[in-house]
């Protein structure tokens, strides 16, 4: 099966004044459609940088990043935005919902940008997603009226509403308590298994990692291992 993400010998350096700080050093990775992958590693290991490159919100200094069959280095800013809109869903650590929009409007937003569905179709699609993430009763609430877990559910619904092939989640449980975090990961896993959407998420948390099909370990900007995660109980013990 053709990988949905293919990264070959990717380097990413940030300039800090006159100093170049390497964030990724020769990373290569293939992710096949339908996988549920965790990227693990200590702070500063390059997890977020790797997700940013896969998510087409940043460009590599060297190397090739291919997402959904398209080499991101060859795409214009407009094409990258379009690729993000139609192919990738994002879930952020801090939820990043638009505060002045309601839950419904936040989830509807990507559909408005896509301009593929009519208003009744959009409404149906949004309500379906809100029901799937268990937040349909809060459709008219503002994000500020929701708990952290509820906000992240909204973020999950927003990430999935445009039917992306790939969902990227940067530490989606970091701002949640462990029980709520577990629920969010369970929800993501459920959507992955049911719809076949590929999920790549970064985390520190061994218990969260245990839900993944595979864990990519990053250290100092390099992949140091790709492994099957430990079982839930073992992971809980490690935690």
């Amino acid at each position: 099966m053709a990988p949905i993400v293919s990264i070959v010998d990717v380097y990413k350096e940030y300039s800090l004044g006159k100093t170049l700080v390497p964030a990724l050093r020769g990373v290569s990775l293939d992710v096949v459609a339908g996988e549920f992958i965790s990227i693990a590693g200590p702070s500063g290991s390059g997890k977020t940088t790797l997700l940013n490159l896969i998510g087409c919100v940043d460009v590599a200094t060297r190397g090739t990043v291919v997402v959904a069959g398209r080499n991101t280095a060859e795409l214009s800013e407009r094409e990258l935005t379009s690729l993000r809109l139609n192919t990738i869903g994002f879930i952020f650590q801090s939820f990043n919902l638009v505060p002045v929009l309601s839950v419904f409007q936040n989830v509807e937003f990507p559909l408005l940008l896509q301009r593929k569905l009519s208003a009744p179709e959009r409404r149906k699609r949004v309500m379906l997603l809100l029901e799937q993430v268990g937040i349909a009763t809060h459709a008219d609430h503002r994000p500020s009226e929701l708990s952290g877990g509820q906000r992240q559910r909204v973020a999950v619904a927003r990430a999935l509403v445009g039917s992306p092939q790939l969902v990227l989640a940067d530490e989606p449980t970091a701002n949640l308590d462990s029980v709520t975090g577990e629920h969010i990961i369970d929800l993501m896993k459920e959507l992955n298994e049911r719809d076949g959407t590929t999920f790549i998420f970064s985390t520190h948390d061994a218990r969260v990692m245990s839900h993944a099909n595979a864990v990519i370990r990053l250290e100092d900007g390099q992949i140091v291992g790709r492994e099957k995660p430990l079982g839930g109980a073992q992971a809980a013990g490690m935690h």
Binding site: T81, R84, N86, F90, F92, S94, F109, P110, L113, G162
Partner: peptide, 16 residues
């Protein structure tokens, strides 16, 4: 700024 970044990330073009 974060909101702008989020909207850009989820697919909002610069013109919008």
């Amino acid at each position: 700024t974060r909101e702008i970044g989020t909207l850009r990330a989820i697919g909002m073009q610069r013109m919008r």
